[in-house]
């Protein structure tokens, strides 16, 4: 927008335009910056037996001097002091990386098949991908409990086809495997849709040309299709990776007590320990960690544009 106005210096500043530009900034200020500052402020205070359960740090603008002198980063130091948090961060990243990879592995062929399907069929296929959103996310995760638990549907199925003996039971529920299944299932549409939109836009004549020139299909895929779909791959991966890192519901419902994820640690700090300052510090660090991939993503998007 800025460059447009520079090229037209004759344009008088237009209040309506300022308004339009201001809307997203006001949005960011209200719904990102302000909550972040509140969280950051809480992260610098201490727990107390009071309502709300932390020491007030900042009472009006007159108290700025006190505020600065009382700043203490104890909560952040505590985070580095206790291996639990670092392990939880790393474990979340590990689960997010593996899940994103699995999503790509499953989502890509799906998106490709959708993009190559007859034009008349495509809207129906997109619809089928979106359809699960019509039921509550929680209900769908609970359904997985019914499927995966030791005496659940999958065990019954395996027993009925003779894969399992009568006493064998599926030991997947409350393990990391169940978490992966839940995550891959829940996030699949978020991976498939960006991939599909990238693949659908692709010019198929390129593939025809490649095949005319004697390029085998698999080589044409790696030389043409995949590089052209890269923006979709990155978009889908980011859209999945970032929320998976902070995922709480799926590991809580499907994972075992030893499934360590930062979202769950955060929940425990908040609800179990009622330690809002420390919980806020965990949240701030989580945000900082996720800003890095988001910036890489932004950068990529700019290049593509």
């Amino acid at each position: 927008m800025a460059s447009v106005s520079e090229t037209h210096p004759a344009n008088k500043p237009n209040p309506a335009r300022w308004l339009v530009v201001a809307v997203p900034y006001v949005w960011l200020l209200l719904f990102f910056a302000a909550p972040f500052l509140i969280i950051f402020k809480i992260s610098l205070s201490e727990t107390a037996i009071a309502m709300p359960p932390y020491t007030p740090l900042f009472d009006g603008f007159g108290a700025i001097g006190d505020f600065v002198s009382e700043l203490d980063f104890d909560n952040y130091l505590f985070l580095t002091d206790d291996p639990l948090y670092i392990e939880a961060y790393l474990s979340s990243l590990r689960i997010a990386v593996i899940s994103t990879f699995l999503l790509l592995l499953i989502g890509y062929p799906m998106a490709l098949a959708m993009a190559r399907a007859p034009t008349t069929l495509r809207p129906t296929l997109v619809m089928l991908v979106i359809l699960p959103f019509w039921t509550s996310f929680l209900i769908r995760v609970y359904a997985w409990i019914g499927i995966l638990k030791p005496d659940g549907l999958l065990t019954l199925l395996f027993q009925s086809v003779g894969l399992f003996g009568a006493d064998d039971q599926l030991q997947v529920f409350r393990t990391d495997y169940a978490v992966f299944i839940g995550i891959v299932y829940s996030y699949l549409p978020f991976m498939v849709l960006p991939l599909y939109s990238a693949l659908e836009k692709m010019d198929n004549t390129l593939l025809e040309a490649a095949s005319d020139l004697g390029c085998p299909p698999w080589k044409a895929f790696w030389k043409i299709t995949f590089p052209l779909s890269l923006p979709g791959v990155i978009a889908g991966s980011m859209i999945c990776f970032i929320p998976i890192t902070g995922e709480f519901v799926i590991p809580d419902l499907l994972g075992g007590a030893d499934t360590l994820m930062i979202g769950k640690t955060l929940w425990t700090e908040f609800f179990g320990n009622r330690d809002w300052p420390l919980a806020s510090a965990v949240a701030v660090i989580l945000l900082i960690m996720l800003v890095v991939p988001i910036m890489i993503f932004q950068n990529q998007q700019k290049k593509v544009a």
Binding site: L84, D258, T268, N273, R274
Partner: peptide, 20 residues
């Protein structure tokens, strides 16, 4: 429990639950 004691308690408990 006081707040500091609570933190010790929960830290130990979380470590037990996560098996670390």
């Amino acid at each position: 429990y006081g707040p500091r004691e609570q933190r010790v308690l929960n830290r130990v408990w979380t470590q037990i639950k996560t098996g670390s």
